[in-house]
Design a protein around this nucleic acid. Sequence first.
DNA 1: ACCATAGGCAAGTACCTACTTGCCTGTCAG
DNA 2: CTGACAGGCAAGTAGGTACTTGCCTATGGT
Lengths: 101, 101
Amino acid sequence: MVVVVEDDVFKALADPTRRRILDGLVERDGQTLFEICARLAAEGGPGLSRQAVSQHLAVLESAGLVVPRRQGRYKFHDLNTEPLERIAARWRRPDRPESAP
Amino acid sequence: MVVVVEDDVFKALADPTRRRILDGLVERDGQTLFEICARLAAEGGPGLSRQAVSQHLAVLESAGLVVPRRQGRYKFHDLNTEPLERIAARWRRPDRPESAP
DNA sequence: ACCATAGGCAAGTACCTACTTGCCTGTCAG
DNA sequence: CTGACAGGCAAGTAGGTACTTGCCTATGGT
């Protein structure tokens, strides 16, 4: 059982590179490590080694934001937006007039 | 004019103490520095000096999550949830069936 | 079988951030 | 005016985090 604490989600989102990885996964699910590496490099950001991206993915996985899916020697990564919904709802004002149901 | 980048918002949310400060402000707006200090101490968390809280508030302010309001020798802090709405919307799936326009 | 590909593990380094301590400024009460 | 209160500024320190380098495992093609 994987207990994902909100703390891990915030820590995962704190890094700009990890956020860019999520940006890439929004566009297309199931990318491999090398695909993500190539996409980051293509976007012209800072030069990143393969290991750096791998470690970022590990952080995203432990936060539950990315779900890995192994198949042969490939490991595809899928995005999971569910933790994001919760963190946004945390500080929602109960008294704010905002599209009341 | 204060240009608030998303980066600052994520960095501000990365710290658990700052999130607890936001939690306190959701319950009651317009708390002073000492009030926030007392509330954090009452919640039984880790011991925090006044300066530590002050620096946390500075980070929250530069992220636009907390808006200060000076009055005499007091400085009241109000919560601003607007940046939170944006960061949640960032990774929303376009193909997800969710209130399509 | 062999080698290339896809990825993981581990140690080391440079930087960043949270926190503390000490001192200073401005505001109200007596 | 004087002292107490609310808060800010600045330098220093300890722990964390991102990134690199080097080596290792496993799967697939030829």
